[in-house]
Design a binder for these strands. Sequence first.
DNA 1: CCCATTCCCTAGTGGTCGTTACAGAAAGAC
DNA 2: GTCTTTCTGTAACGACCACTAGGGAATGGG
Lengths: 198, 198
Amino acid sequence: MATKQRGRPRSFDRPTALEQATMAFWERGYETTSVSDLTRVMGISAPSLYAAFGDKRTLFEEVVAEYVLSHGAFGVRAFLEEPTARAGVARMLREAALHYTEPGHPRGCLVISAAVNCSTPEVEEALRARRNANLASIEDRIRRDVESGELPAATDPRVLARLGGAVLQGMSQQARDGATAEELAAVAEAAMLAWPPA
Amino acid sequence: MATKQRGRPRSFDRPTALEQATMAFWERGYETTSVSDLTRVMGISAPSLYAAFGDKRTLFEEVVAEYVLSHGAFGVRAFLEEPTARAGVARMLREAALHYTEPGHPRGCLVISAAVNCSTPEVEEALRARRNANLASIEDRIRRDVESGELPAATDPRVLARLGGAVLQGMSQQARDGATAEELAAVAEAAMLAWPPA
DNA sequence: CCCATTCCCTAGTGGTCGTTACAGAAAGAC
DNA sequence: GTCTTTCTGTAACGACCACTAGGGAATGGG
C-alpha cells in the first residue's frame, strides 16, 4: 500500500488545525465563523484549508464528527458506564455542568449552539438531527428501565428524556450567558428531583 | 404642538412593518436576517427602512422592545397574576409550551435565540442582559416566598430560578427542533416535580 | 541531475453585506 | 402657483463573504 507521500509535505499538523477550527466554530457558530477567521486561527492560507479539508461545510462536518467523539463524548459515556437510565442522566447533567464551563475551550455545547440562526439548511438540519437522535437514545434507555421495572410503569420515557434534553440545552445556553460550574451543578441536581424516586 | 406632518406622508404602516421585521428576526435571528430580507418582508425599500427605523441594530432594538411587551409578555404576566412563585413558574412554563409552538409566528423565543452566534457584541449582550434580568426577577420572586414561609427555608432561590430558566430555554430550542405543544407541556409539568412540595 | 507530485502563497473571482447619495414625488404653508 | 418639507425608489459605495486560478517551492523517484 501507500507508504511515503510523493510530493511536498504539508507544512501544518492536520489534527491540530482541525482542533483549532473546532474551537472557532464552537465559539462563534458555523455561520459567524468566516473562512478568514478559520485561516487565521488555523495558521494556514485559504487554498491550504480548501486542499486539506474541502469547503467550509465539509470542514464543519468533520469538526462535528471529531467533537462528538472527544469533547462531546461525556454524554454517551455516562450511559455506557452507569447501570441505570437515572444514573446516566444524572451523570450526564453533572458532567455537563463541569464541561460547559471548563476553561481552555468555549462554553456550552457545539452541537446545541453552533447551528442556531444558520442560513445553510443542511448544516442546521444536521445538528438538529444529532440532537433529536440523542433525545431518542436517552428515551430508549429510559424505556428499557421502565420495562425492566427499574423505573415505575407509569413513567413516560419520552417526557423524561425531553426534560433531560431541555435541561441540558438550557445549561449550555446559561453557561454561555456566564453561569458558573457550581450554579449549573446545582441546576443538574435539582433537575433530577423531577425523576421518579430511586 | 405638532398636528399635521408637513411633507409627503409615509406610504406604509409603521407598526405593521415593525411586526413584519419582528417575524423575520424571530425566524432567522439578528445576524442571519439581512437588510434585504427585511425590506422584502416589510415591503419597503432600504432608504425607507433607514429613514423610519434607523439602522439595522436600532430596528432590532425596537423589535425586541415591542416583542417583550407583546409576544414575550406571558412570562411577566404569569408572575403578576399568580399568587405564588411556584404557580408563576408553572404557568410560565405551561404557557411557553403553547406559545413556542403556536402557528402564525416562528417557534421558540426571540430573546432566547435571536442573538445566538451573533458577531455584534452589543446585540448579543443586550439579549443576554435581558435573560439574566429575567432570571434575577424570578429568583427575587422565589426568595419572597421563601422568606414568607410559602416555600421551605432550605430552598435555594437562585438554583430554582436557574432551573426554571434552563427548562424554558430548552423548551424554546426543542420547539425550534420540532417538538409539539403536547410534548413541551408534559416537559413543563414534569419539570415542576423538581420543586419542593406545595 | 531532472521530473512528477503535492503543497505553498498571492491575488484575485463574483456575490452579498449594511448603508447612503441623489433626484423625483407628494403633501402642507403661503 | 411656488416653496419647503418629507417621503419615495434607483443605483450605487466600500467591505467582506466563500472560493479558486496560477505559479513558485519542496519533496521523493529515477
